[in-house]
Design a protein around this nucleic acid. Structure first.
Length: 281
DNA sequence: AAAAATTACAACCGCAGAGGG
DNA sequence: ACCCTCTGCGGTTGTAATTTT
């Protein structure tokens, strides 16, 4: 790693004091300058890059702008159900290791995942009046939210044609009303209660778990919402379910259906502590 | 239609680690 | 061994956009 100087360092016309740094939102012109410079010189050495490109920004700011916004392979827009599932799984394993989690979601940035977690997941915990790190909330994620996501992926794959890519499921993430009215909860039990007659596929701990899950669902395989014993601390996602059994949750699901809301967006539904207590009775 | 509240997300900050001088 | 700079990460904030009242 080259940390000092740069090709144009001697040509730097301004001292640090003379060069007042810009802050706040980037302008289109700045974006173009940064993109043009990187396309011809490559990325890295951000401080000298900022100077050489004539940008009145810190190297840090340039790096962030490039990585989170301008990079050609960056994916923006709705987080798909597959990605949500993967984020939930990986966060349960690694905690707030956003960059590590982002490595397993192609095109997604750590910043975007972090924002997703804070705005969606933590909001959900707030509605439930429990801490996002609490066992209770983790159980909700594991036994209600994740199966729901899996069911959604299933529904999406059923509605899609054979040539549709997995990534395209993002289009179904919001507002697929037909799912709500046309799909019951019956199929969910098998997802977490694999019997000998229907062996389940354990959600993979590999990097592409979300996409792997999607492919398995497309193929009609059952998915088990547990991690291999060697993963995570103490042998898995949530060592001891607080619910009597995974299946128990689904016995109550018809009553809970109302709480999952009227729209397609899972996280927009109002839950409260009483709902969870009801589940645990 | 307007004001207030909420949400989403881009950007900044501080810190820690790596590595060269 | 120490200092300095760069890089990358996670937490936080500011604000534009959207929704609700």
């Amino acid at each position: 790693m080259e940390v000092h100087g740069g090709a144009c360092s001697s040509a730097t016309p301004h001292s640090e004091e003379e060069m007042e740094l810009r802050r706040g939102p980037w302008t289109l012109e700045e974006d173009l300058v940064l993109m043009n410079y990187i396309s011809s010189h490559g990325e890295g050495r951000w401080n000298s890059l900022a100077r050489c490109a004539g940008l009145k920004r810190t190297g840090k700011s340039c790096r962030l702008r490039w990585l989170n916004y301008l990079r050609p392979d960056v994916r923006r827009g709705n987080i798909t159900p597959e990605e949500q599932l993967l984020i939930l799984e990986l966060h349960s394993r690694w905690g707030n290791r956003w960059s590590k989690i982002a490595q397993h979601l192609p095109g997604r940035t750590d910043n975007e995942i972090k924002n997703y977690w804070r705005t969606r997941v933590q909001k959900h915990a707030k509605h439930l009046q429990c801490d996002v790190d609490s066992k209770q909330f983790k159980d909700v994620m594991r036994y209600l939210w994740m199966p729901r996501l899996i069911e959604r992926i299933r529904a999406a794959s059923a509605n899609s044609n054979a040539t549709e890519s997995v990534a395209d499921y993002g289009n179904l993430a919001a507002g697929d009303q037909t799912f709500e009215t046309g799909t019951g909860w019956g199929g969910l039990g098998e997802i977490v209660k694999p019997g000998p007659e229907s062996p389940a596929t354990t959600v993979s701990s590999s990097g592409a778990a979300g996409y792997e899950v999607a492919e398995k669902l497309k193929a009609g395989e059952a998915i088990q919402l547990s991690l291999p014993a060697q993963i995570g601390c103490g042998g898995g996602l949530w060592p001891e379910p607080s619910l009597p059994s995974p299946g128990y949750a689904y016995q109550a699901l018809p009553e809970l259906e109302q709480y999952w809301g009227l729209g397609g967006e899972i996280s927009d539904n109002l839950w409260n502590l009483e709902d969870i207590c009801y589940l645990q009775q």
